[in-house]
Nucleic acid binder design. Sequence first.
DNA 1: CTTGGTGCAAAATGTTTGCATCATA
DNA 2: TATGATGCAAACATTTTGCACCAAG
Lengths: 140, 140
Amino acid sequence: MAAGTRLETHIRAAGFKLTPPRRAVLSVFGKDEHLSPEEIFRRARKSHPRLGRATVYRTLELLTDLGIMRPIYLHGGRPVFTRIEGGHHHLVCSRCDKITELAGDGLAETIKRLAKRNHFEIRSQLLEVYGVCAKCRKRK
Amino acid sequence: MAAGTRLETHIRAAGFKLTPPRRAVLSVFGKDEHLSPEEIFRRARKSHPRLGRATVYRTLELLTDLGIMRPIYLHGGRPVFTRIEGGHHHLVCSRCDKITELAGDGLAETIKRLAKRNHFEIRSQLLEVYGVCAKCRKRK
DNA sequence: CTTGGTGCAAAATGTTTGCATCATA
DNA sequence: TATGATGCAAACATTTTGCACCAAG
């Protein structure tokens, strides 16, 4: 679990303690995983049964403050958490709720350029384009 | 209040009743206004004091279903509502929470082009770039 | 051994729902 | 006047907080 190890190092480097509950939370994240606090709780408890919900929330807050993870609000305003790196550019279909990653194509670069013009230091990008996906348009 | 009138017409056209509470909710939205349900409730109650919170939520849901408004989730996952038209491109400073509109510059067009390539029909765009604004960087 | 981290339970917050009443179309 | 809309209060879901105890560094 290289990714997990890297995250763990990050926590210690920032001067925070690396505890079993925190390891359990970190361990459930693969790359590009989008998980709700409740789902994280359920999964992490498998490796650390004593885990409480409050600790999940506190750990997610810590990880967010450290710039390791970030919440994304998609359906109904409930958050899912994901690793912060990379651009998160989504086409969200409001019919079938399918989320398509909108890859590359100079989008991230365009955004960086615009941000630079505003002297803004980018930490994370999130683009959500809402509408109707190709499949649902046909099925109309 | 041309905008308000236009929205009211939209509601009737869709076969819904135009009631005082709904007019009160609609009336608080200027253009580019981003308001939380609670703030909408507070403002709308000035023109219609009997208004209840539930009606605000129900009206916002209706307006969202009609494609007139949309929720945006910025700070701490609490929604703010805004008119759906136009691109909503924000630079969000995680130090001071200031939100800067990232205007034009071909961004909306770039996104449209990419969506078209995916045969995706755009209804609304939302870009959130998180990071540190110019002012806060200096103040470091 | 010191300080930050944890789990539990209670509290706070934000949103939804059931229902009797009201008013638009 | 029929049906959809409203306000109220209770229910609900999610997140935060207080506190005594625990363990990583």
